[in-house]
Simulated scan of single mutants.
Amino acid sequence: MSLHDDAVRVLKEYEPRDPGQSEWRQAYLDHLAAHPDGVWKACGAGHLTASALVIDPERGRVLLTLHRKLRMWLQMGGHCEPQDATLAAAALREATEESGIAGLTLLPGGPVRLDRHPIPAPCHWHLDVQYAATVPAGAVERISDESLDLRWFRPDEVAGVADSSVVRLLEHSRARLEGCG
Rank of each mutant, 00 (worst) to 15 (best):
V10D: 02
W24D: 06
Y28R: 05
H67A: 15
E23S: 08
Y14R: 07
C43N: 09
S22M: 11
H35D: 00
L32V: 00
H47V: 00
L66T: 13
L53G: 14
G44A: 10
D37L: 00
I55W: 08
A42P: 08
Q21N: 05
W24P: 03
L63W: 14
G60P: 14
S51W: 07
Y28H: 04
R68M: 14
E58M: 14
R68H: 15
W40A: 09
G38T: 00
I55F: 12
A42S: 12
V39D: 03
V62S: 12
L29K: 05
G44P: 09
V10Q: 06
V62G: 10
P57I: 14
Y14C: 09
H47Q: 00
E15S: 06
H67W: 14
Q21Y: 04
D37H: 00
G44S: 09
L11Q: 02
E58K: 15
Y14G: 04
I55P: 11
A33S: 05
R25Y: 03
S51M: 10
A33I: 00
G20W: 04
G46Q: 08
R25W: 02
R61P: 14
L29N: 04
L66H: 15
A27N: 02
A33D: 05
H31E: 04
V54N: 10
G38P: 02
A27F: 03
P19S: 02
